[in-house]
Each structure stands twice: as structure tokens, then as C-alpha cells.
Design a protein around this nucleic acid. Structure first.
Length: 271
DNA sequence: CACGGATCCTGATGGC
DNA sequence: TGCCATCAGGATCCGT
């Protein structure tokens, strides 16, 4: 489910409401990707101060320490005053004075990790190598180009790796490369400055619009095609192998890169 | 060190 | 209750 826009929209959905809340109890279900890192009882009595985001991680600031929350491939967070009984895939729940925060994650690639601070070893391990925030002012063409020049692998895989720029997941990687007219297999270091500029613009444009549009993914959009207001985020290439390119009509191709599927238009995207 | 591949887990889907 | 293979929006870990 979650690429950066959904994580950001999730954050916006409860950050203000949970701020100031006191933690009343913590429930842990089946193991997630990593252990919580402290006894659940240690969180009781803490106060939630804010919810921030770094890449696809949510940072839930407490008066002592913080929680790093990642939704993995299949996770979703809900926050409400009253929730139904715990479901099969609800593996973390934190009751607070303002409502209950609950993580549902069928595949359990997600995680909730307590760290004493952002300098704690586990925090540095998870957050330390993250690249630039795509919607921040830091992410400019010059820095993007400099980052890509250091990487010798395919541009699609560099986008996914997240150590140059964060938040571009498998769907948006294919989509932004289409919008920029760049073949996904091209060596990142060899992209010309104008092409880097086009890719930079595509990333900011697509991610920014997805956040503004409520974080729904392109895949969801395609299934909801025809709904007004969402039309502009219809997938151009993702999951469209064999179908006609919406721009030129050429059949969309697919390939595997690092165990992930990639989609592109062989005519619109130049090698 | 940078890269490519294996890996964690459950569920949906489609072929046979 | 059919069985099996494949794929899924992530990203870390490990061997080379």
C-alpha cells in the first residue's frame, strides 16, 4: 500500500489529533519485522508530542524517546476514539487519552520500534542512510544530479534504493521515469543534466499531487478510473504491460529489476 | 564499497 | 474446502 504520499497522508490524518495524548496501554500481536525494542509497559504514561515523517517512516515523538513506524508492503494505520475488536492482522495497538492508534499489516513487513532518540543506534541504522526528501527544498536538480553521478546501477533501482532520494516506490519509479522520458535500465551516473532535471520535476510533481489528492495510489486510481478529480493520476505505464501507451500507442513493456517489476514505453522512453 | 540476490510474511489470482 | 506457481505498493542483510 504505502509509498511516500500514503505515509504522509496517514500522518496528516492523525498527527494533530494524537498530539498531547497520554499513552494508556500498548498491545503487541504477532511479531513484526523488528521487535519493539522496549517493554510495552515502558510506553505507558508517556505523552505523544508530535508525528513527523522521514522517508516512509513515521516518527511518533514522545516526551521520552520516539516510535519509528513503518508500514512495509501491506501496513495501514488507523486512529480513532473507538475501534472494533482486534482483527487477525492487527499487530500493534496503542490506546491513548485521545484515541487508539492501530497497525494492521497482513504481511508483517512493517515495524514499530522504540528508540530513546534519533541518535540511538537503531534509529541511526534505520534512518541514517536515507536520501533527500523529495518534497523539501533540499531536493534540487544539482544535488539530485550529484547523487546520481555516484551510482553506477540502473536509474530505476537507484530511485527504489532511497539513498539518493526517498519515498519513490515501485509504482512511482516507473511512472516518473515515463514522465521524464527515461528508460529505467539506464545507468544513473550517465544521465545528462537536462534529463535529471526532467526526472526531478516528475518526482516532485507526481508525489506532490498524490499527497494533495489524498495519497491514493495510482493502482487505486486506475481501478477508480472515471471518478472526477482523480483522473490526472491514472497510471501511464504501471501494471499496463501489453497495453497501448496513452501517449503514442506503442505496447507497454515490462521487465524485472532486482526482483521488482518495471514498466515502460519503448517509444516514449529513450535509452 | 557498491552491487545483486535472497529473504521476511500472507493473500489474491490464474493455470492446470 | 484442489493444488501449485506466481505476484504484490519495502528494504535490510549478506556474499562477492
Amino acid at each position: 500500500m504505502p509509498e511516500l504520499p500514503e505515509v504522509e497522508v496517514t500522518r496528516l490524518s492523525f498527527a494533530d489529533r494524537i498530539a498531547g495524548a497520554e499513552v494508556l496501554s500498548v498491545y503487541l500481536g504477532k511479531a513484526l519485522r523488528w521487535p519493539l525494542g522496549c517493554a510495552p509497559a515502558k510506553l505507558v504514561g508517556r505523552t505523544v508530542q508530535a508525528v513527523r515523517r522521514r522517508g516512509k517512516y513515521l516518527l511518533v515523538d514522545l516526551d521520552q524517546g520516539l516510535l519509528l513506524v513503518h508500514l512495509g508492503m501491506s501496513g495501514s494505520l488507523g486512529f480513532a476514539r473507538h475501534l472494533a475488536a482486534l482483527g487477525k492482522h492487527d499487530h500493534f495497538e496503542m490506546r491513548t487519552s485521545h484515541g487508539t492508534l492501530r497497525l494492521n499489516d497482513p504481511r508483517r513487513f512493517g515495524a514499530v520500534v522504540y528508540v530513546a532518540g534519533e541518535d540511538a543506534p537503531q534509529a541511526r541504522k534505520l534512518l541514517g542512510k536515507l536520501g533527500m526528501e523529495p518534497l523539501s527544498d533540499d531536493f534540487d536538480v544539482a544535488r539530485f544530479h550529484a547523487g546520481l553521478k555516484r551510482r553506477k546501477t540502473a536509474i530505476k533501482q537507484v530511485l527504489l534504493a532511497g539513498d539518493v532520494v526517498v519515498g519513490v516506490g515501485n509504482i512511482y519509479a516507473s511512472e516518473t521515469l515515463f514522465l521524464a522520458g527515461i528508460r529505467p535500465t539506464l545507468n544513473a551516473a550517465r544521465l545528462s543534466r537536462p534529463r535529471v532535471a526532467r526526472l526531478h520535476a516528475a518526482i516532485r510533481d507526481v508525489l506532490g499531487r498524490a499527497v494533495a489528492g489524498g495519497g491514493s495510489t495510482l493502482r487505486n486510481f486506475s481501478s477508480a478510473a472515471g471518478e472526477s478529480g482523480h483522473f490526472q493520476l491514472e497510471a501511464m505505464v504501471y501494471a499496463r504491460a501489453g497495453q497501448a501507451c496513452r501517449v503514442c500507442g506503442t505496447a507497454i513493456k515490462s521487465l524485472r529489476q532486482g526482483q521488482r517489476s518495471t514498466f515502460y514505453c519503448p517509444h516514449c522512453q529513450k535509452a
